[in-house]
């Protein structure tokens, strides 16, 4: 059976404890990163901000509540958050998080990851459209528009990583394998990291693409799509957004820091720190920049595509030479 042949990169001697620690660590971390962003923004705003564990409290509160469903909705509305989160959780197994290797990676998993994100997006959009609200429709339309534009950029970035490492497995394309590429075509790698960062901001609906904290539904993208969700559903959504940030952030961190081996506890701690730093960076950007006008967002995303395309060119040219 093929399952047996799978390359499961578990630490050999035992150990369920380590595995459990890894899984729990990854699963528990995301809300904290949101907290880091919130705290940063509060600091820039001269406020104290919510407590560090506020995101966890929110999730717990939501889980304890019941749910309200509009009579216009169908099962699609209820399936939306579940499928989105399930897709993200599945993607978690293929992205190197705590450690140099992913848990269930295989050759060609990068495409599955990208498409799992898309699956989640599809169901979020459908759930939003199920309410029949014009606002949520507007948000959905923007979501798919910007996702469409960021998709080529993502794939071009992945192509750069694949070409530079000669690998089609996500964890093998990152980390130390990239060291040579950073050495020979550093500029291309910089471009990739830049593009990945823009993609991260887009996918996670952060400023300058989207403002998660705005109160004007007409200008929202992600937040307006989930207006009608409540209770555990909304908890799934909130948690999913944070998890997505963690996953893309981890990807970015692994791509940007090829010298680090990410092994053992030091590796884990370094990873934690890097993600915190990334969250800090996002928080700083959110505090210092305003949201772009919607039609400028396409320009930003086109820019990301161009950046990654340029990176591809550089890498290919390097290979030819």
């Amino acid at each position: 059976m093929n399952l047996l042949a799978m390359t499961i990169h578990l630490p050999v001697p035992g150990v369920a404890a380590v595995v459990t620690a890894q899984v729990l660590g990854v699963l528990l971390l995301p809300p904290l990163l949101m907290s880091v962003i919130a705290k940063t923004k509060a600091w820039f705003g001269g406020r104290d901000g919510p407590p560090w564990l506020q995101p966890y409290f929110d999730l717990l509160k939501l889980f304890r509540k019941g749910a309200v469903y509009s009579h216009t909705t169908t099962w699609v509305f209820r399936a939306g958050p579940i499928v989105s989160l399930a897709a993200l959780l599945t993607a978690t197994t293929m992205i190197p998080v705590l450690g140099p290797n992913s848990w269930l990676g295989f050759k060609g998993d990068l495409i599955l990851v990208a498409y799992l994100f898309a699956l989640g997006r599809m169901f979020t959009v459908l759930a939003a459209m199920d309410t029949g609200s014009a606002f949520e429709g507007m948000g959905s339309a923007r979501e798919v528009t910007f996702a469409t534009m960021s998709e080529p950029a993502l794939f071009l970035c992945l192509a750069v990583l694949a070409i530079s490492t000669g690998n089609l497995q996500l964890d093998d394309m990152l980390g130390t394998n990239l060291a040579g590429a950073w050495h020979s075509v550093g500029p291309a790698m910089l471009l990739v990291v830049g593009a990945l960062f823009i993609i991260l901001l887009t996918e996670c609906s952060r400023i300058p693409v989207d403002d998660p904290l705005t109160h004007l539904e007409l200008t929202m993208i992600h937040e307006v799509m989930v207006l009608d969700h409540s209770g555990p559903d909304f908890a799934y959504i909130t948690y999913g957004a944070a998890l997505k940030f963690t996953l893309l952030g981890s990807l970015l961190v692994h791509a940007a820091m090829p010298q680090v081996a990410w092994v053992g506890l030091p590796g884990a701690l370094l990873w934690l720190a890097a993600l915190m730093a990334l969250a800090l960076l996002v928080g700083i950007i959110e505090s210092t920049m305003a949201r772009l006008r919607l039609n400028r967002v396409s320009l930003l995303l086109a820019g990301a595509t161009v950046l990654s395309g340029l990176a591809v060119l550089l890498v290919l040219f390097n290979k030819l030479a």
Binding site: A118, L126, M129, D130, S140, V144, T148, E151, F155
Partner: peptide, 28 residues
């Protein structure tokens, strides 16, 4: 790479398109 970018763009656009059809026809 051209094929790759094209395929990725297609994927995004197809998603937009079927989100549109399914939600407008069946939802709401």
């Amino acid at each position: 790479v051209v094929g790759l970018a094209g395929l990725a763009l297609m994927g995004g656009l197809a998603l937009a398109c079927f989100a549109k059809v399914f939600s407008v026809v069946f939802l709401g």
